[in-house]
């Protein structure tokens, strides 16, 4: 038995109803340019710190304040003129600060967005160059890797409360291209990364040391790490394979959970997260929060997995306005933010 909800965005849930998506609100960005990303951020609006939605179009980034009854009002918009916005980089526990990545196909600039004391919108250049991977961390920190093989650099930046200054620390480079970073739940000074050559690397964020470089096999080439969990001396890592080949009969897993013993660098597969029968597609974009993973697929559908249960718990099919193109979890509650290129952002409670 499958439950199919009404428009907008057909929702499929499994018969056990272990997960459910319910549409609670819709934001319409009237900008003519293409929407590229969404996230949530803590912001002090009219003297009150609250969780706001932040949306990005090609040349604008807008902050939305919540009103009553799940309605949203746009309060600030930052404008960009030369390089388009690629993604929002939230700094998870920061207030009144958010970063954005700008570029064409690859990230060329990272900018910090904030407001001055007199409520003027400000932006400052944090990093420029050939940026390969970036992640916002807790405690107003941002990690990014840039440069090519010979001048490869991994920087950890810490921003002041107001965003006016930053401290920079260099992490030891694994001397190969880093594709993605992930925080390690349960080990706050650890940072994990995946590399182009199928390695997983671990840093100590306090000392900047590169603790381990571990080969995870050719079947994981160019994997993206989304989240890691440290438990009982082992590291559990959620990966996706944006370049994975789809096997027609069963499809390739969208996410994969592996386990690594960091002491021995030995690893094993734990569980694949695949699409239900009859659905196909490859990973385009996605996010893992706590035990929930969401992905936008090449088919234009959004799929949600409960990592503990091990199976897909909800599917959000494209609606009459078109395919889904980006998806994020809200920072404060179990809401799924689903966006389309035309500026529509739908908020679903899970």
């Amino acid at each position: 038995q499958t439950k199919v909800a009404e428009h907008p965005g057909e929702i499929w849930c499994d018969s056990l109803k272990l997960g459910n998506l319910q549409l609670v609100s819709k934001l319409k960005n009237p900008s003519d340019s293409c929407s590229v990303d969404v996230s949530t951020v803590w912001w002090e609006v009219t003297g009150c710190k609250e969780s706001c939605i932040i949306t990005a179009c090609e040349f604008t980034v807008s902050l939305w304040k919540s009103l009553d009854n799940w309605q949203w009002r746009k309060v600030y918009t930052w404008h960009f003129t030369e390089i388009p916005v690629l993604q929002i980089i939230p700094l998870w526990d920061a207030c009144n600060l958010v970063c954005v990545a700008l570029g064409h196909l690859e990230i060329r600039e990272i900018r910090l967005l904030f407001c001055s004391d007199d409520e003027c919108l400000k932006q400052s250049l944090v990093k420029s160059g050939n940026i390969k991977a970036v992640l916002g961390l807790r405690h107003k920190r941002l990690v990014c890797s840039n440069g090519t093989l010979h001048d490869h650099q991994v920087d950890l930046m810490t921003f002041s409360g107001s965003g006016r200054s930053k401290e920079k620390q260099t992490l030891m480079s694994p001397e190969e291209t880093i594709l993605a970073f992930a925080e390690v739940q349960g080990m706050q000074d650890a940072l994990l990364g995946t590399t182009l050559m199928s390695n997983i690397v671990i840093w100590n964020l306090k000392t900047g040391q590169l603790l381990k470089k571990m080969q995870i096999g050719n079947s994981y080439q160019a994997s993206i790490c989304h989240k890691a969990y440290s438990d009982m001396g082992l590291l559990f890592v959620v990966l996706s394979h944006p370049h994975g080949k789809e096997i027609e009969s069963m499809g390739s897993p969208i996410f994969q959970l592996i386990v690594i013993n960091p002491k021995t660098a030995l690893s094993a597969d734990v569980r694949p997260y695949s699409l239900p029968q009859g659905h196909t597609g490859r990973f385009l974009d996605g996010e893992v929060k706590d035990t929930l993973a969401a992905a936008v697929l090449t088919s234009g559908t959004i799929a949600v997995w409960d990592l503990f249960l091990g199976h897909c718990t909800a599917l959000l099919l494209p609606n009459s306005d078109g395919n889904w193109s980006f998806v994020k979890w809200s920072g404060t509650d179990s809401c799924l933010l689903a966006g389309q290129k035309n500026g529509n952002v739908f908020v679903y409670s899970y």
Partner: peptide, 23 residues
């Protein structure tokens, strides 16, 4: 997988790797 697949497990792996890694 069992402990024999992954080798000996240490609950203090982070501290141990930090002391073993180059500064």
């Amino acid at each position: 997988c069992s402990e024999s697949d992954l080798g000996p497990i240490s609950l203090n792996w982070f501290q141990e790797l930090t002391s073993e890694a180059p500064p």
